[in-house]
Amino acid sequence: MSKIFIIGLPRTGTTSISVALLDYFKVAHIGYTKRTFELADVISDCPCFCDYQQLDVQFPNSKFIYLRRNLDAWLPSIVMLLNKLIPTFHNQTYVSPILKRCFEQTFKLIDTVTAPNYTDLKACYQEHENAVQDYFNGRDNLLSIDIADRNSMSQLLDFLNLSHTNNQVFPHLNMGRRLDHWKEIKHINKVHSNISGREGRKYFAFVGT
């Protein structure tokens, strides 16, 4: 069962691309359970940016979309998000163990109480980008785009073999300090991130969760 995975880091436009694809596919912005992955055609953000190699094996013949973003814009945006999330990783507030694992692993957050500095976060961004490029080197199932580019929507729809007009553009969501625009979206193709299935709310065994 092939899927479409959005593997750009948080704050690179994962909400915008998820909303853009709702008119074509069943979409989950974040997927915490096997059942969510079964029901959705497209899954973005966490845990895809962290688990893309395992998901590539789990779902053969899938397509992957890597989202780039100008670092001058991305760095303050990711710092804002991390400073909101990190306290929940250290107190009694419930937070998904999958979310916690992916963020701690990708951004090296173990034992941190605030977001890393720009230099360290830039290194995390580049490490992720290099790993994606190395993994997909020589393959044709990865598209790399920056949704701020005028032609990026056309490139995406071409990659997915979808008809379109050349003037289609991405919606720009979660701008500034917005973090949760996805919750406000109402669409028949929207898939919840934490759907229970035959095994409850279990994730895949490849990470031991």
Score class of each variant (00 low, 15 high):
Met1His: 10
Ala40Phe: 15
Tyr94Pro: 15
Ala73Gly: 10
Gly13Asn: 08
Asp56Gly: 13
Ile145His: 00
Trp182Asp: 03
Trp74Phe: 12
Lys63Ser: 10
Tyr24Phe: 11
Ile65Gln: 04
Tyr24Ile: 08
Leu156His: 08
Glu184Lys: 02
Asp56Arg: 09
Asp120Arg: 11
Ile6Leu: 07
Trp182Tyr: 09
Phe103Tyr: 13
Gln92Thr: 13
Asp134Gln: 12
Ile110Gly: 09
Gly176Glu: 10
Ile188Gly: 04
Thr33Pro: 02
Ala20His: 02
Val27Met: 07
Asn91His: 07
Ile195Lys: 02
Leu71Thr: 10
Leu157Cys: 00
Tyr125Leu: 05
Asp120Tyr: 03
Phe136Thr: 11
Pro97Met: 00
Asp120Gly: 15
Gly200Phe: 13
Val207Gln: 11
Ala40Cys: 07
Asp180Gly: 06
Ala148Trp: 02
Asp120His: 13
Ile43His: 03
Leu21Trp: 00
Gln53Cys: 07
Gln133Asp: 15
Gln155Gly: 01
Pro87Trp: 06
Asp72Ser: 10
Cys102Thr: 12
Leu179Ile: 06
Asn161Ala: 08
Thr114Met: 00
Gly200Arg: 08
Leu21Tyr: 01
Phe89Val: 00
Glu129Gly: 06
Lys122Ile: 13
Thr12Trp: 12
Asp146Cys: 06
Thr112Cys: 06
Phe59Gly: 04
Trp182His: 05
Thr36Arg: 05
Asp56Trp: 04
Leu179Met: 07
Asp120Lys: 07
Val169Pro: 05
Ile110Leu: 06
Ser196Asn: 09
Phe25Gln: 01
Lys3Trp: 10
Pro47Thr: 11
Asn189Lys: 01
Asp180Thr: 15
Tyr24Ala: 03
Thr15Tyr: 02
Gly200Thr: 08
Asp56Leu: 11
Val113Leu: 05
Glu38Phe: 14
Ala115Asn: 09
Ala28Cys: 08
Ser152Cys: 15
Ile43Lys: 02
Val57Tyr: 00
Ala20Asp: 01
Ser144Ile: 14
Met1Tyr: 07
Phe136Asn: 07
Pro60Met: 15
Thr209Arg: 09
